[in-house]
Amino acid sequence: MPAITPWRGGEPQFALTDHGRSANCALERRCSVCGGFMPKGPVWRVVGAAESAAIADALRAGRSYQNLAPTMEGPGHRACMLYAAMVCPFLARPNARRRQTAEGDGADEVTAAAVRGAVRGGTGAVVGFADYEYAVTETRVLFRFLDLVEFLPHETADEHLAELRAELATAAAPAQES
């Protein structure tokens, strides 16, 4: 269960983001998926087709990638974002459609792509950034991601299964040695 998911009537509302939970994750540097602490260093997020294409274009042209447009999607651990990309139908497949609008009934510049019926389309990606910034407003938490460090594109997210297994094995190794 994502750490930022709100509950209504005892049921998780997967396509929505709970303001208080998201704010706590931002303020305490916690992963938006597992809720665990993220130490200083890179953070990851999953991006849709438009941002994935922009990153790929910048890399092909030998330019650094900078997207300072705010998003409501918070950062997470590398393993958590690989996992999220695989288990969320919208993130996992290019033909998946959103079942509900991410926030409220209408869209604005931040939520325009997160409306009911929207298709992820094209190639998605799990992307690592050196750091992030955030702002907690009265109605939402906004994130900006800085300095690209890793780009893992996918047509379907199951392409990341070997990478997820390797990440989990690496994370478990120190615990097994003690």
Rank of each mutant, 00 (worst) to 15 (best):
Met72Glu: 15
Leu148Asp: 09
Gly9Lys: 05
Pro6Ile: 09
Gly41Ser: 11
Val115Asn: 06
Arg165Lys: 05
Ala3Gly: 10
Asp108Ile: 04
Trp44Tyr: 15
Gly20Gln: 13
Phe14Trp: 13
Val46Pro: 10
Gln100Ser: 13
Val127Ala: 08
His77Asp: 00
Pro12Phe: 01
Asp131Ala: 12
Met72Ser: 12
Pro174Ser: 06
Asp158Thr: 11
Cys25Asn: 15
Arg98Gln: 13
Pro70His: 01
Leu82His: 05
His77Gly: 07
Glu109Tyr: 10
Ala50Gln: 14
Trp44Pro: 08
Glu133Trp: 02
Gly76Arg: 02
Asp131Thr: 15
Val47Ile: 11
Val115His: 06
His160Cys: 02
Ile55Val: 14
Val46Lys: 03
Ala50Gly: 10
His160Ile: 01
Ala118Cys: 10
Ala169Thr: 14
Glu11Met: 08
Arg99Asp: 14
Arg8Phe: 04
Gln66Trp: 05
Leu27Thr: 13
Pro42Arg: 06
Thr101Arg: 08
Val141Ile: 07
Ala49Arg: 11
Asp57Trp: 00
Arg63Cys: 07
Ala172Asn: 12
Ala92Pro: 08
Ala118Phe: 03
Ala54Phe: 05
Phe143Leu: 02
Ala92Arg: 15
Arg29Ile: 03
Ala56Tyr: 03
Trp44Glu: 12
Thr139Lys: 09
Thr156Lys: 04
Gly104Asp: 12
Ala118Lys: 11
Arg21Ser: 12
Ala15Met: 10
Gly122Thr: 07
